[in-house]
């Protein structure tokens, strides 16, 4: 399923947070969204997931406008993993994942063995099958993050949107998670902080800067020393790995000007 955005704009207090962004996540593609803090990634994601109604432009799933889809139907096609969603409820790990079945259940469609199996699979996929009865508040940040992802998987979406899904995770689980999302197939849009993760796993990379889309293309095309310097304000050299994907080696920041005291 294809997720497309046409001329999306979002303003807050008269300032454009996202301005005139058009992009298309192709069916089955893994598109990474990168950009510095405050570049508008999260706002763009909220619009793409249908949580914020754009002030300009429109989002479509295949050729159906997202705004015209009932929320429940949209949630069967598209799942979102937010940054840091928390709860004060005494939920167990399994219950947090079971919520993912919500859009598939109804008054006439009760919980079934199939739902049970889907939840179990999702818990196994994120390596949380042994902690299913633990209380939410007793889990670490990384474990909670993996449960959020399991909940999204339990939604069985055609399109998976992730907002910095690797926050809080250790290296093993960062790579494991991205590999899992990649392996699972389906259309994926993931906002990522780590440019090397984007280079390793994404088919294409979209770069945001100050609310605008400034580059969109394959990792090798997009991740150039010039772009990294212009957008992220760091010096880097780009190597090409054996898989022909770029690898970014950051240089330490330039020495501070002489008049700045080194505290």
């Amino acid at each position: 399923m294809r997720l497309s955005a046409a001329n999306l704009t979002w303003r807050a207090a008269g300032r454009a947070i996202v301005e005139d962004v058009s992009l298309e996540v192709r069916s089955g593609e893994f598109l990474a969204l990168v950009g510095p803090n405050g570049s508008g990634k999260s706002t763009l994601i909220a619009m793409l997931a249908g949580l914020k109604r754009p002030h300009g432009g429109a989002v479509a799933l295949d050729d159906r406008p997202l705004a015209a889809l009932p929320r429940r139907e949209a949630a069967r096609l598209l799942a979102l993993v937010e940054q840091q969603a928390e709860t004060g409820e005494r939920l167990t790990a399994r219950q947090a994942v079971e919520l993912g079945r919500t859009p598939h259940l109804g008054a006439l469609v009760p919980w079934s063995g199939r739902d049970e199996a889907i939840v179990r699979e999702a818990l196994e996929a994120v390596d949380m099958a042994l902690l299913t009865d633990r209380m939410w508040h007793s889990l670490s940040g990384g474990e909670r993050q993996r449960l959020h992802i399991a909940r999204a998987l339990a939604q069985e979406p055609k399109v998976l949107i992730l907002d910095e899904p690797t926050n809080h995770l250790d290296v093993e689980h960062q790579l494991g998670l991205l590999a899992l999302v990649r392996r699972r197939g389906g259309t994926v849009l993931a906002a990522l902080h780590d440019l090397n993760h984007a280079a390793m796993f994404a088919d294409r990379i979209a770069v945001m800067q100050a609310g605008r889309l400034v580059a969109l293309g394959t990792p090798a095309d997009v991740l150039t020393p010039d772009l990294v310097a212009a957008v992220f304000k760091v010096r880097a050299s780009i190597e090409t790995g054996p898989d022909h994907r770029p690898f970014i080696r950051y240089a330490p920041p330039a020495p501070a000007p002489a008049e700045t005291p080194a505290w």
Binding site: R71, A75, E86, L91, A96, L99, T102
Partner: peptide, 23 residues
């Protein structure tokens, strides 16, 4: 009671509920 499952979906906040298909 008819909204019991809907209320469950608010556990992680309104944005999360909306993402789970709750109007």
């Amino acid at each position: 009671l008819v909204h019991a499952r809907t209320l469950d979906a608010f556990a992680f906040g309104t944005a999360s509920a909306a993402a789970l298909g709750i109007p």
